[in-house]
Design a protein around this nucleic acid. Structure first.
Lengths: 124, 124
DNA sequence: GTTAAATGCAACCCCCATGTTGCGCTTTCT
DNA sequence: AGAAAGCGCAACATGGGGGTTGCATTTAAC
């Protein structure tokens, strides 16, 4: 009944809303490099993190805040400098998200076949 | 020698360049939902995919192309409509990327401690 | 006490991603 | 054949991300 087209029944799994800003934060070369440096070399000051990036310190500051907004990095005062570091807790969660989503895709891909096979019989 | 600060020795692992556009493509709510619908309901036409998104068909078309650029989806002609579907091959690769990167972070986090412990002895 | 280093803040560019509208073309449907 | 569905293309608007410069402020160094 109702299944006018059956499309309405395909509820798009509302994927964790946090995933969007997370991916967005990771979708920038400079930010990925910052994460790389941080993961390779512990807490670093802004100036230190800016070296060799080709962009201004201010720009780096912004990127750090962007990463901070999604909880991937945290900051702390150390004397006159502000040091940033990875937030491993969040990083772990992020990793789980990625795994989860990837798994979803896999599962769906599996079910997809049977589902399509079915429909094909009905519609055609 | 040279280790003026030791910072130069911390080579930022040049992370797979493909990761950036991939994350960027995933960093959008509409696109994530599109992937969700596709993974849940096989190949779908543009019009079908546009339903219930709140945006124009053209907008959806663009998003699909964006996803296509990073290889996550593919398209094909079916009569007068153009149907899109997930590219499971690429999806698998993407998943591996995510795992790989997450692993890198983990490893680095591990090594980080020892490294920092070390440095602390030298510098302080 | 001065000087220099490391930041924070704010005002400004500039480009591009996202979204829209209008129109024309092809393929179905009746 | 004629109407309608489904798209593709192109022109246009605009909001926000990414980057910069200039200046004030705090803190380490001499």
């Amino acid at each position: 009944m109702s299944s006018k087209r059956g499309a309405a029944a395909l509820q798009p799994p509302p994927a964790p809303p946090d995933a969007v800003p997370l991916f967005a934060a990771l979708g920038d070369a400079t930010r990925l490099r910052l994460l790389g440096r941080l993961s390779a070399g512990g807490p670093l000051s802004i100036t230190r993190l800016s070296e060799g990036t080709g962009v201004t310190r201010q720009a780096i500051t912004r990127h750090l805040h962007a990463l901070g907004r999604v909880g991937l990095v945290r900051h702390a005062r150390r004397g006159r400098e502000r040091v940033w570091d990875l937030n491993r807790k969040r990083l772990e969660k992020a990793k789980q998200y990625l795994d989860h989503i990837a798994a979803q895709w896999d599962d769906a891909a599996e079910r997809l076949r049977a589902f399509v096979e079915d429909k094909r019989g009905e519609q055609r």
